[in-house]
């Protein structure tokens, strides 16, 4: 890289890999993006942790589509298992434990099926992004119980959308170059978040939700 800020240079000199430094600097940007989606656009997702961690899981897989595929399979199997386990009438944590185990096996089958179809990229996905995505099913099951199936699926789709935005933002070469050159830029996220935290206007989706009322106001 041509322009490396002295502070980044110092980190590298101390043995921190450049990739790690960049990812850590990306975190404030990704979480600010998630806050923006929630406060201004009105896309909720499963809180802030899940879309952030899924974003980084996506960044860690060799090809984005395999990451998305694993995400979708995890959610689908999680959804099916809710119906399958309903009759068992067992408590929350044991139920999630069973769900997680079965999802783990399903992913194993998926990876080997990819290998059988000569999609070696799928099997080459490292274990950590896979584990991360398996564990997000807990959020999904919790949402299913609290808010119902439909709401849980919507939240999962929203998580996927935000994570995709996060992925493209965090892998944008220009942004990476900028951060490496001027890492202080990251500090802008703090005033942005203060603004978002004080933003009391309608969210974009609320303009849609209240369209009938807006038509009637004079």
């Amino acid at each position: 890289m041509e322009n490396i800020s002295p502070i980044i240079g110092y980190f590298i000199h101390q043995g921190v890999p450049l990739e790690t430094v960049v990812l850590l600097f990306m975190l404030p940007i990704v979480v600010t993006l998630i806050a923006f989606f929630r406060q201004v656009i009105g896309i909720k997702a499963f809180g802030i942790y899940t879309p952030a961690i899924v974003t980084f899981a996506f960044l860690a897989v060799p090809q984005l589509r395999y990451g998305v595929l694993i995400f979708i399979v995890v959610i689908l199997v999680g959804m099916l298992l809710r119906f399958a386990l309903k009759g068992l009438r067992i408590l929350y944590l044991p139920r999630v434990a069973i769900t997680l185990s079965i999802i783990a096996f399903s992913i194993l089958i998926l990876l080997s099926a990819g290998g059988a179809m000569h999609r070696t990229g799928l099997a080459a996905v490292s274990i950590f992004p896979i584990l991360i995505m398996i564990t997000i099913v807990e959020k999904f099951v919790a949402a299913q119980i609290e808010k119902g199936n439909k709401a849980a699926v919507i939240l999962a789709v929203e998580t996927l959308i935000i994570s995709l935005f996060g992925y493209y933002l965090a892998s944008w070469p220009l942004l990476i170059k900028g951060i490496v050159a001027v890492p202080w830029l990251i500090l802008i996220t703090i005033p942005i978040n203060i603004f978002l935290g004080k933003w009391d206007g309608l969210r974009l989706n609320e303009y849609i939700r209240f369209r009938e009322v807006l038509k009637n106001l004079k």
């Binding site: 009105g42 004080k198 009391d200 206007g201 309608l202 969210r203 609320e206 303009y207 807006l214």
Partner: peptide
């Protein structure tokens, strides 16, 4: 006009933050 009328409505943000 829509944005002006929007300020008459209580959204999630304003509900949590202002009330």
């Amino acid at each position: 006009e829509i944005f002006k009328n929007g300020s008459k409505l209580l959204g999630m943000n304003a509900r949590n933050l202002d009330y």
